[in-house]
Nucleic acid binder design. Structure first.
Lengths: 350, 350
DNA sequence: CGAGAGTCTGTGAACGTACACAGAATGCCA
DNA sequence: TGGCATTCTGTGTACGTTCACAGACTCTCG
């Protein structure tokens, strides 16, 4: 890293002469009315005469008035911001298209409601403290929490502060917060049964993120589908929904059970990693081993062969979580639960 | 989508009885000092006696005081927030790990400086207006702009408002804003020369996003490397750095020039799409056709074969852009330019 | 002892908005 | 004409903080 050029202006000591913004007072003077009337007009309230309305409109464009958010927030006792808390390592945030989709869905819904979204990524211990402090600071009116873990310190802080919250996935512990989910267990069961239906005899699973409800539920669905035929030696647990974890998990399964002929990977990224390991081991997919994933993320269509998987409405999850938080902020409803549909997408990998 | 359960509390009319927060005044009373002294302590200023300090510390934990940001922002005339503007379609935001990395790098640097990052994604015309309004509203003290286009309305708004800004990539037009770049042209030239060195005779390029400086510069580097051997029929321009654009671009090249034996794809995602098209056409990589990409993103290691590409310090770009904005906000320096290093990573695709 | 420097403290005024309240103007009806 | 509802308007206060200022107190040194 190198700097090509450093240009310093001569008047470096002057911080910023920022042209001072017009206030509601300036508009009032310009329009020949009072602050109150301008305020009423701006907030679309009743009781503003046609004459006043016209002169205010003209005055606003003349002085270039834009309401000051800080002042408004101060008196309204709110910030018009919602935190988006992702409890994952930085690397996974980049790698998992799912999180990006959820983020986008939430961002869209919040924007439409004139709220800003503040992204908070919790990776290290240090982040936990920082985010907890941040939440206590009243920077946000509510939070959306993605991939909370069991015994999550952030969730405890959220609960203690009683800030409106919505989880994507089940909230940890006995929380009564809002959440939006898909039926992970049911979907996992369904795709496993479908995999069984292709005639596989030795079906294993690369289970990931068992400390989150999604990971645990997918394993539960897998177990339920196999019933008596379940063999715990065919389950390999990996920590994260990541490509490298999938590769390592598949390698472990191949060593422990060389006769394995079907694999349910807990996510598409995991499945993609598994495909690499299978390729390295000289196994053909789907001829020798059938592989199914979960998410229907960008990975699914771009692996070779393309993945059979469970379609998850990631953007919808984000959107609904945002709406649930907004409802609580407006006080129009108590915490709610919501279930979105998922579906099996059958491609070439099984 | 279906709702499983709607629980409404009985007292739905009461908006939120939010326990009112302690103020600096409460702390002052509890500690037996004045507001001013508490303020000085909180802001780490001089002239606070040891006795006062102790009683204030005790009072703060007792009443559970956290400073009110809105009030502070109001009097300080700033928001402690920086906008992160991405000028891309939603789909690409999810697909391109590069943007995620830049976002993460910026977010980390901003967090360390106690600034929050507000993500603003500009996709449609409607978004442009919304974001422009947002910027005028004083919600942010500065902005980081990623993938600005020529004649970008957002950039014009930023310039007009004179809000501190830093671009990732060259700013459009004659802007004098800060920016942080890599040498796209030089890197493109270097990897093309390397590709030539493998003995390829008919080398083409899938050029993407020519309305952005990165896209145009990569094409320029490619052209320069080929010199006399440049054949414009071997260049296919596609609109976006996306997988599907890469696939379509490669198909077009194959139709126009079936004897093509080398391809420089403008990004890894584009290269991954090109690999699919080549596979579909029955060409082997790298045996029949050599392919190189750009970015060294998650795509590069996971295509088959793994991509030879240019490593770009994406997180570093975000981080430096954040630092450049922070410098301007603090008024410690005028707009700056910064060049980060890139390097060629040679793998199996060429 | 008095002057001056250095340390510490409290008070009053902003910052820009929303909201409650009082009051003015108008229209209507008895 | 008086009374009353309705519409509209202006003023004062509050939100929680920072900052400038004035003043009190402690030292030190001539």
């Amino acid at each position: 890293m190198s700097s090509i050029d450093h240009k310093y202006s001569e008047c470096v000591s002057i911080p910023t002469p920022r042209p001072k913004r017009a206030t509601v007072h300036d508009v009032a003077v310009e329009a020949g009315v009072s602050r109150g009337t301008v305020s009423r007009y701006v907030n679309g309230e009743r009781y503003v005469s046609a004459a006043a309305r016209e002169s205010i409109e003209a005055a606003i464009v003349k002085v270039g008035y834009v309401p000051n958010t800080a002042a408004r927030n101060l008196v309204m006792q709110r910030s018009q911001a919602v935190g988006f808390i992702v409890h994952e390592p930085h690397a996974l945030f980049v790698e998992d298209p799912n999180i990006g989709e959820i983020l986008l869905g939430a961002n869209t819904a919040l924007s439409e409601a004139d709220h800003q979204m503040v992204v908070l990524i919790v990776d290290s211990e240090r982040d936990t403290d920082r985010v907890a402090r941040y939440l206590s600071g009243g920077f946000v009116d509510g939070v959306i929490i993605v991939s909370a873990r069991a015994n999550d310190p952030i969730s405890r802080v959220v609960e203690r502060l009683a800030v409106p919250a919505a989880y994507v996935g089940h909230p940890p512990g006995a929380s009564t917060a809002s959440f939006v989910i898909i039926d992970n267990s049911g979907a996992a069961r369904a795709i496993t049964e479908r995999l069984i239906g292709t005639g596989r005899q030795r079906i294993g699973m690369i289970a990931a993120a068992l400390d989150r409800d999604s990971g645990a539920d997918r394993l539960a669905g897998f177990t339920a589908a196999l019933g008596d035929r379940f063999d715990e030696r065919l389950v390999e647990a990996v920590p994260l929904y990541s490509y490298s974890a999938g590769r390592d998990g598949m390698q472990a399964l191949l060593e422990r059970a060389p006769d394995i002929d079907g694999v349910f990977a807990a996510s598409d990224a995991v499945a993609a990693g598994a495909l690499e390991a299978l390729r390295a081991a000289g196994r053909r997919v789907p001829d020798d081993v059938g592989v199914v994933g979960f998410d229907d993320s960008a990975w699914a269509k771009r692996t070779l062969p393309a993945l059979s998987t469970v379609r998850q409405p990631a953007a919808g999850l984000g959107r609904q979580a945002a709406l649930l938080v907004l409802d609580q902020i407006r006080g129009v409803s108590a915490p709610n639960e919501m279930l979105l549909d998922s579906a099996i997408v059958w491609r070439d990998s099984a």
